[in-house]
Deep mutational scan, measured.
Amino acid sequence: VTVDIKGMEYHFDNPEEAKKFAERMAKELGGELKVENGTLKVE
């Protein structure tokens, strides 16, 4: 699973970990979490 945090890509084997990480980063950065082509994106 790929997580894109404002252009920086992180790769996770575990989808649950990827989702938790993306949600935490969205909250910390005040960004919006989206799913695009199987990639979790925070913008």
Rank of each mutant, 00 (worst) to 15 (best):
P15V: 13
G38P: 05
E36T: 09
L40M: 09
I5K: 01
E16N: 07
A18F: 02
V1L: 12
A22S: 00
V42W: 02
D13S: 10
L40V: 09
G31D: 05
E16G: 07
K34M: 10
L29G: 05
I5E: 02
K20N: 12
G38R: 01
E23T: 02
L29H: 07
G31Q: 06
N14T: 12
V3Y: 00
M25T: 03
L40C: 09
E9F: 13
G31A: 11
K19I: 14
L29Y: 06
G30R: 08
E16P: 00
L29W: 05
L40R: 04
V1K: 07
G7V: 01
A22W: 08
G7Q: 01
M8S: 09
V3N: 01
K34P: 04
L40A: 06
E43P: 06
K6E: 15
G38Y: 00
F12T: 00
E16Y: 09
K27C: 14
E32Q: 14
M25D: 00
D4G: 07
N14R: 03
F12E: 01
K34L: 11
Y10L: 06
K20W: 06
T2Q: 05
E17G: 02
K27D: 07
V1G: 04
M8V: 14
Y10D: 02
E36Y: 04
Y10R: 05
P15W: 15
E17N: 05
E43F: 13
E28G: 05
V42L: 05
A26Q: 07
K20Q: 12
L40S: 05
P15S: 10
G38E: 07
L29E: 03
E28Q: 11
R24E: 12
D13G: 08
E28C: 15
H11T: 09
V1E: 02
D13E: 11
K41H: 11
T39P: 05
A26R: 06
F21L: 02
N37E: 09
A22H: 03
V42I: 11
E32N: 13
A18Q: 00
A22V: 06
V3T: 01
G31R: 03
P15R: 07
L29N: 04
E17Y: 03
V3G: 01
E32S: 14
E28W: 12
F21E: 02
V3R: 01
G30A: 07
G7W: 02
F12V: 00
A18T: 00
A18H: 01
V3C: 07
F12I: 01
L29I: 09
D13L: 08
A26C: 13
E23G: 00
V42N: 04
L40H: 06
E28A: 12
K41L: 11
G7P: 00
P15N: 07
I5D: 00
H11G: 03
L40K: 05
K27L: 12
V42S: 05
V35K: 06
K20D: 13
V3Q: 00
E43T: 14
K41A: 07
T2R: 10
G31L: 14
V1W: 14
L29K: 03
G31F: 11
L40Y: 07
V35T: 10
N14M: 04
Y10C: 14
E36D: 11
E28D: 07
A18D: 02
A18M: 01
L29T: 07
K6Y: 15
R24Y: 12
T39H: 12
E23P: 00
M25H: 03
L33M: 09
L33P: 04
L40W: 04
E28R: 10
D13H: 07
F12Y: 01
V35Q: 09
K19G: 05
D4V: 15
P15L: 15
V35C: 15
A22L: 09
M8K: 14
E32H: 14
E36M: 09
A22R: 03
R24P: 01
D13Q: 08
V1S: 08
E43Y: 13
E23H: 00
N37A: 04
I5Q: 01
M8F: 12
E32F: 14
A26I: 09
F21R: 00
K20M: 09
R24W: 09
D13I: 07
F21C: 11
M25K: 04
P15T: 09
A26K: 04
A26W: 06
D13V: 07
N14C: 12
F21S: 01
E43I: 15
K27H: 10
F21G: 01
G31Y: 12
E17V: 05
D4W: 14
A18Y: 03
H11E: 06
D4N: 14
T2Y: 08
F21H: 03
Y10H: 09
V35R: 06
E36N: 09
H11Y: 14
V1C: 15
K27Q: 11
G30N: 11
N37I: 04
V3F: 00
G30I: 03
K19D: 06
E36I: 14
E32I: 14
E36F: 05
R24K: 13
H11F: 13
M25Q: 04
K27V: 10
G7F: 04
D4I: 15
E36V: 14
R24A: 13
E32V: 14
E43M: 14
E23C: 08
N14Q: 04
K34I: 13
K27M: 11
K34Y: 11
M8A: 08
A18G: 10
T2D: 03
E9Q: 13
E23V: 03
E17R: 02
F12R: 00
M25R: 02
E28Y: 11
V35D: 09
N37F: 03
E28M: 13
A26E: 02
N37D: 11
F21A: 03
H11I: 10
V1I: 12
G30W: 04
A18N: 01
K41C: 12
P15C: 14
F12S: 01
G38C: 11
M8R: 13
K34R: 13
K34W: 10
T2K: 13
V1H: 09
M25P: 00
G31K: 03
G38S: 03
G38Q: 04
V35N: 10
H11C: 13
P15Q: 10
T39Q: 12
E36R: 08
V3W: 00
E43K: 11
D13Y: 05
N37C: 12
P15H: 12
T39Y: 13
M25F: 04
